[in-house]
Simulated scan of single mutants.
Amino acid sequence: MPAPSPDFKRALKQLSDKEKEDLLLKAVRRDAELYDLVRYEILPDVDLRTLLDEHAERIAALLQKANGRVMNRALSRALGKAAKEIARAKRITKDKRLEVDLNMYTLRLVLDEYPQYFEGFVYAFYVSTVRLLLRTAKLIPKLHEDLWLEYKPEFDDILDTLRRHEKHRQLRYPLPTELELPS
């Protein structure tokens, strides 16, 4: 997206409040992400908790609606869509903790509802879950040190659950035994 030119800024200042409102409403109707961003910025009742709940519901719906001939592949695609939903939430809020919370929610949901799909010939769903876990492992050390202790036990539990499957030996990269935090 190009940077707004001085002429554009000047023309925008010359618009009346009604014209600015119409222009903003037209833009928000076309782009759902822009709508969420503007809603987050201007409405006082839309905070991080609200966005966390909304995106968690969307992620749960994506995984529940997954269907196909091979359920492992369908769940793997749904997990990819969930990752895009998490990225969208991060773009809206610019909050790393929200991203980690949504990643952990997704991992908990997968391990609570769909662990039976880790078994079988196709292991795309298992690999997708491991990738999400490793992405989360890279994000947690970027948070404040006090939050590390909050996420570490649950993360290590999820990691231990994924390591119990035989498929972790077939991965191209070894799974760590615990969350590695900087000293």
Rank of each mutant, 00 (worst) to 15 (best):
S76R: 02
A56Y: 01
E41A: 09
N67Y: 08
F125A: 03
A32E: 15
R49A: 14
D146M: 10
V100Y: 03
K84H: 12
A56W: 00
R69N: 10
Y151F: 15
L134Y: 04
A89I: 09
S76I: 01
R73A: 00
G120W: 04
A27D: 07
E145C: 05
L132P: 06
R58I: 08
I42M: 10
R131A: 13
D47F: 07
A61Q: 09
A61M: 06
V110T: 10
K138W: 01
R77T: 12
Q64T: 08
Q64P: 00
V130D: 01
H144F: 09
L51V: 06
K142I: 01
N103E: 09
L51Y: 00
L48W: 04
V127W: 00
D36A: 14
L63S: 01
Q64K: 10
A78N: 03
L149M: 09
L37N: 06
A56Q: 06
Y105P: 00
A27T: 08
R108Y: 12
A56E: 02
R73V: 00
L143F: 08
L75I: 06
E85P: 05
A87L: 12
T50H: 12
K65N: 15
A89V: 09
E54R: 10
L37Y: 12
Y123Q: 09
R29E: 12
K65Y: 07
L102N: 12
L75E: 03
L134F: 07
L48P: 02
L147F: 11
I86N: 13
D31N: 15
Y117W: 13
F118N: 08
D45L: 07
R77S: 08
E57R: 07
H144N: 13
G68D: 02
G68T: 02
L79V: 15
K90S: 00
Y126Q: 03
A78W: 03
P115T: 00
L37A: 11
E145P: 09
E113A: 09
F125L: 01
I59G: 04
A124G: 05
R39M: 11
V130W: 03
D45A: 04
V100I: 13
P141N: 10
N72V: 01
Y117P: 00
L147N: 02
I42H: 07
G120Q: 05
T136P: 06
R39G: 10
E119M: 14
Y35S: 13
V38Y: 11
A56N: 00
Q116M: 07
V46G: 08
Y123P: 03
V110W: 03
L43F: 13
T106F: 06
A32V: 14
G80A: 04
D101K: 10
K94S: 00
K96G: 12
K96R: 12
E150G: 06
H55K: 11
A78C: 04
